[in-house]
């Protein structure tokens, strides 16, 4: 009887194919709705730009979570006074911790190209008119675009289309995208502090 010893490279190769298939299946299961497919990445440079952007946002989250420790603790059943104290302290602490923050710190040129192209694709076509209308119908009275300062808490917030959110670089739960007219902004979810913005992002 001939005893065949498996070639280690072959085993690794087969395993990798199986793993790759499993990953593909898992991803397909999560995004089986074609509307939620991610935006196509066209080059290694674009992939690097997305990773770099996501890493910069993660760095921000590390910083804000450290800063957050200095704010009064906020329970899940807080009073309006406790909520107010938490928000104002967090807002001020973030501003101090990010002194000198400027537009373009997070939305660097390489990622803005990708985002602009994604927005252009997503907003193209007559069937996408509604998305554009949603972005532009938001009442923005009192909103001033200024990095490190809060989005006016009396102003409406634009609905972010689910299909678009699936295509933009993914954000941690502490940070959100929002449209202000044709501008795309990044805000801290709890304090509403504007972290960065892209002017005229919408095509």
């Amino acid at each position: 009887m001939k005893h065949i010893i498996p070639d280690p490279l072959r085993v690794v190769g087969v395993s990798l194919i199986a793993l790759s298939f499993a990953v593909t299946v898992a991803v397909a299961q999560k995004t089986d709705n074609p509307a939620l497919a991610p935006a196509p990445v066209t080059s290694p440079a674009e992939k690097a730009a997305i990773e770099s952007f996501e890493n910069h946002v993660k760095d921000y989250v590390k910083l804000r979570n450290k800063v957050r420790e200095t704010a009064p603790k906020l329970s899940k059943d807080a009073t309006p006074e406790q909520i107010h104290a938490y928000r104002t302290t967090l807002e001020e602490s973030l501003r101090n911790a990010r002194k000198g923050a400027r537009r373009g710190d997070l939305f660097k040129p390489d990622i803005t190209s990708f985002i602009r192209r994604t927005l252009k694709n997503e907003f193209q076509g007559r069937d996408r008119k509604e998305i554009r209308d949603i972005a532009f119908e938001t009442e923005l009275k009192g909103v001033v675009l200024r990095v490190n300062y809060p989005y006016a808490d009396s102003a409406e917030q634009s609905e972010m289309p689910a299909t678009l959110l699936a295509k933009l670089p993914q954000l941690p739960k502490e940070v959100r995208y929002r449209f202000v007219g044709s501008n795309l902004i990044l805000v801290d979810r709890e304090s509403n502090v504007i972290l960065d913005f892209m002017p005229d992002a919408l095509p």
Binding site: K76, D77, A78, T79, Q82, I83, D153, E156, Q157, E190
Partner: peptide, 18 residues
């Protein structure tokens, strides 16, 4: 809704558990 601030999730009477 689109007029609500995120921290309402912590409000004692909204039972959103954060």
């Amino acid at each position: 809704g689109n007029h609500d601030q995120a921290l309402q999730v912590n409000y004692e009477h909204f039972n959103m558990n954060g």
